[in-house]
Amino acid sequence: MSAVEATDLDDAELISRSRDDPEQFAELFDRHARQIHRYAARRLGTQAADDIVAETFLTAFRRRDSYDPAHKLARPWLYGIATTLIARHRRDEERFLRALERTGIDPLPAPMADEVVERVAAQGQERRLAGALARLSKKERDVLLLIAWADLSYEEAAQALGIPVGTVRSRLHRARRTIRTTMGEGSRWTS
């Protein structure tokens, strides 16, 4: 019987095997850690994200027995766990966004130097956007950022948050409307 390389298994099979051979779970980390980090870092900064990545996978490992193998990709599941962990730092998240709105300076790590010129031009709109994000409800912001930053589909976001797809749509719709209203005067936003 030939050995199957871990890289040939989809996430569901990998998690299933890791129930009896826990070592295999590390492959899930290799596949998804960096993506989870990017999402968490955009919300809370890279240092907080380092911890959130570790905690996400530890939590996922502890819960691997209850993973539903019908979901071939683990991303929604992992993003769901990460989002719950990020929620503990909600006040920090909103404070950082409001600081960006107020001062134009993002308290999260600075972008690349060669982006400076472009950023100066976008300051006004970006600042208003940050303010709008800060004022969304937690539920709307989670849906919006899972779709905009984690690139999840509506179905995947629904799975991640444990809510119906219809709820995802309505929360996204409200979030977008709030942003449009906030950006309203003198902006170039189109609906």
Binding site: R34, A49, E126, S191
Partner: peptide
Amino acid sequence: DELTAVRRLREHIPAM
């Protein structure tokens, strides 16, 4: 549109 604007926000966050 506003979704694109959100996508652009913090696009250049440093990687892990």
